[in-house]
Design a protein around this nucleic acid. Structure first.
Lengths: 128, 128
DNA sequence: GGGTTGCACTTTCTAAAAGTTTGTACAAAC
DNA sequence: GTTTGTACAAACTTTTAGAAAGTGCAACCC
């Protein structure tokens, strides 16, 4: 008799191990644009260029790449209409929405800590 | 009469704006090594090379750089003894510990979703 | 006592990633 | 009929990450 599957899986993945697939998934979510894309999509459905304007500073290439990685991991749903000009709508999957909430919490935490962060930076820079 | 300070600060920082200082703070935390370093330090105090072994795959240069950024932002505390050989201990500040808990939650969420992620990847790759 | 190892980095060099620009095939607005 | 917009892909350039070596000494091995 083997252990139940969910108890087993708990120990199968470890982000601290270099080769674990969870490492790349984490990077897709926390990479420079991953977090911003996820949290933007948490606000609703976006078309490609709409999303690009929301995520200030992202290049077309990187947004496409980021969205492809997130779609492949099952966080983002891509709905394309094969019309000309093309119309593609991006939204979160159920799983994506769940994770986006954690990322949203993180962003809000960071924004609220910024006054303290700015102060810490000044103290650090002054000390040299 | 002005608005109270905390209500004001809420709107002062926005990660979606390219030039907002909160953008770089978020990147320090969520960058490739930031998250791993924060969560490792959540387990306790580490010396430099000890941490390097814990965060599998990080180079000396990147770990030093990551820790400096996190120290400057006030998430990490650095305690150096000017002995030979040098002894430097890294730990989280109170603020760092608070944020590290959010990152830990994210990591655990990712690890537990990995079976689904692997399945999603296979479906995505099979569809071409 | 001579060689290796460990410490916490910094500096230099190269490989990989990010960013920029151009091209696509049309359609609608001007 | 020229410009604008769509959602990218491909080619090229710049920035960054990673790998390797250097530092200055002390403690261990044999």
């Amino acid at each position: 008799m083997t252990r139940p599957a969910d108890e087993h899986d708990k120990f199968l993945f470890d982000v601290f191990a270099q080769r674990c697939p969870s490492r790349s998934t984490l990077e897709h979510l926390t990479g420079k644009w991953g977090t911003l894309a996820m949290v933007a999509l948490h606000e609703g459905t976006f078309r490609f260029n709409q999303l690009r304007r929301r995520v200030d500073g992202v290049s077309e290439k990187m947004l496409a790449q980021t969205l492809q990685a997130l779609e492949r991991d099952g966080f983002v749903h891509r709905e394309a209409q094969p019309t000309i000009p093309p119309k593609v709508e991006y939204s979160l999957t159920d799983r994506g929405r769940h994770t986006a909430e954690l990322l949203l919490g993180l962003i809000q935490d960071v924004e609220s800590q910024m006054p303290d962060v700015m102060e810490a930076r000044q103290r650090y820079d002054a000390a040299r």
